[in-house]
Design a protein around this nucleic acid. Structure first.
Lengths: 154, 154
DNA sequence: CAGGATCCGTCTTGATACTG
DNA sequence: CAGTATCAAGACGGATCCTG
């Protein structure tokens, strides 16, 4: 159960028509956790930074070059968030010029597996999603032209 | 490899100091996909709605009551997005009053597993994350008071 | 019942310039 | 090199009211 819902009931679940549907093992204790976690890693850059750091420890500018399109500001903020949540360690060498290494913690490395499964789903099913989106767009414009035919008949 | 990076190189990866670090099997073909997928499902309500629908087909108002805190507007938008991407089907019965059922498609049901693994990670490691956040906040305020001691000595 | 339309504040992101 | 500071723009989400 991945829900964050009110009625994480146990046992058989009844639909509105009282017909038993799929049964799952609910885990109420983690319902809120999923949403919060996704709120944390679901932003625009976090997964890419984590994915980048999955290769190993990396310096600030190296991540900056690796994660295409990220700005200094966003990288700094993302790394700070990850460090704050204990997913990344920041090691500063007070040399001149300064050098800062970032590395995934054990916690951060454990996150790689779930992200990998999400990655696999994404790569495998993205064509289907794109197709669905295209089909949906077509139906939309079709319906729009239908409406237009009756609302603006000149 | 879950990255969305430029140098999804193959084989051994070298750090800035030319010391070989962890080696992973990169899959450049899916780099962008992860980011896009998370952009899709990483919003505030999508996972909760999917989690709710994982129980089985459900009517609009039932989801509304199940997903605590969601507004009509957000539920409608979320469901429309999911339908557009082929993760959810919308079945309308033109009765009075109207009745609309939402149900996960096969694609949507396949998404449950990755979300489940993310859920498991979240429930298992959330205490650690909260602890890390608390520790970080403490260090922050500590450093802040240090600074204050020297910048505003009255 | 299941939305659609509107308004409006907030949060996020990006661009740019500056610094120890 | 590795950031910080500031500003502007746009996306996002919530509240409210309306409807077939």
């Amino acid at each position: 159960m991945i829900c964050c819902v009110k009625d994480c009931t146990r046992g058989t679940i009844l639909s509105d028509t009282n017909i038993p549907v799929r049964t799952m093992a609910p885990r109420p204790e983690g319902c809120r956790a999923v949403a919060e976690t996704l709120g944390r890693i679901g932003d625009k850059w976090t997964v890419m930074v984590v994915g980048s750091l999955a290769q190993g420890p990396m310096r600030y500018n190296h991540i900056l070059r690796t994660v295409e399109g990220i700005s200094q500001r966003m990288l700094t903020l993302t790394l700070k968030g990850l460090e704050q949540d204990g997913l990344v360690t920041r090691t500063m060498y007070p040399t001149i010029p300064p050098r800062v290494d970032y590395e995934l913690t054990e916690l951060g490395r454990l996150l790689i597996a779930p992200l990998q499964s999400l990655h696999d789903w994404a790569t495998e099913h993205r064509p289907a999603m794109l197709a669905a989106r295209a089909a949906f767009a077509e139906k939309e414009s079709e319906a729009a032209s239908q409406r237009a035919r009756f609302t603006t008949p000149k």
